[in-house]
Amino acid sequence: MNTKTLGVVVGTTTIIGAIGFGILYFIGMSLSTALKTSNDYSSSDKLAILILMILLLLFGLITGIGSFFLKNKPWKFIYTGLCLTLGFGLIGFKNELFIMFIGIIYLVLGHLASKNK
C-alpha cells in the first residue's frame, strides 16, 4: 500500500515537473526571441527539450501506473531498477532542489518496491 501511494505521488510529481519544465522553457525561448536577447538556437535544441519532456512524462506514467502491478516478479524487478536508476540520475543535480527531491523519492520508492511494502 505504501509503494502504490508513493508511486502515484512520485509519478504525478514527475509529470507536473515535466510539464512545468517544458512550459517554462518554451516561454523563456519565446521571450528571448521577442526581445531579441538570445543567441541563435537550432531546431535540434528545441527537439532535444521536447524529447526530454516526453521521456519525463513517460517515466511519470510508468511510475504511477506501474506501482499497481508489483505482484508480477519480472515487473517488480524492472520497476525497482527503473526507480533506482532514475533516483541516482536525478539526485546528481544538486543545484535544483526540485529535481533532487524527486530523485530522493525515487530512491525511497525503489527501496519500498524491493522490500514488498
Rank of each mutant, 00 (worst) to 15 (best):
I49Y: 09
N2H: 03
D45W: 12
L58N: 02
G60V: 06
K36F: 00
A48K: 01
I91Y: 06
F69N: 04
S43R: 06
G92M: 04
T14G: 05
I104H: 01
G60I: 05
P74K: 13
N2D: 09
Y41L: 15
L57V: 14
W75C: 06
F69T: 04
C83V: 04
S42G: 15
L112Y: 14
A34E: 12
F101H: 00
Y25P: 00
T12H: 00
M53S: 14
E96T: 09
Y25Q: 04
T12D: 00
E96D: 12
K73D: 08
C83Y: 01
L90R: 01
T12Y: 03
I23W: 05
G11M: 03
C83H: 06
G81W: 09
L107M: 15
V8I: 10
L47K: 10
G11T: 02
I15E: 05
L61S: 12
G17S: 13
K73P: 13
K73N: 08
I104A: 13
G11E: 04
M29Y: 07
G28M: 07
G7I: 03
T5W: 07
G60K: 08
M100A: 11
F88A: 06
I23Q: 04
I62F: 12
T63R: 04
I65K: 12
L52I: 13
N95I: 05
F88K: 02
F101P: 00
L31K: 13
A48C: 00
I51H: 07
M100K: 06
I105W: 08
I65Q: 08
A113F: 06
F59K: 03
S43C: 00
S44V: 14
N116I: 01
L47I: 14
A18Q: 11
I104G: 02
M53H: 12
I27A: 09
L57T: 11
N72F: 07
K76E: 10
L58F: 08
T3D: 02
T85I: 15
H111F: 15
V108G: 07
L109K: 12
L70C: 01
G89Y: 13
T13S: 14
G92S: 04
F88S: 05
I65M: 10
V9M: 10
S44W: 14
L58A: 11
I19Q: 06
G22A: 14
A34N: 13
K71P: 00
Y106N: 13
I23S: 02
T37G: 09
L70Q: 01
K46C: 08
V8S: 04
G110H: 11
L84E: 06
M100H: 09
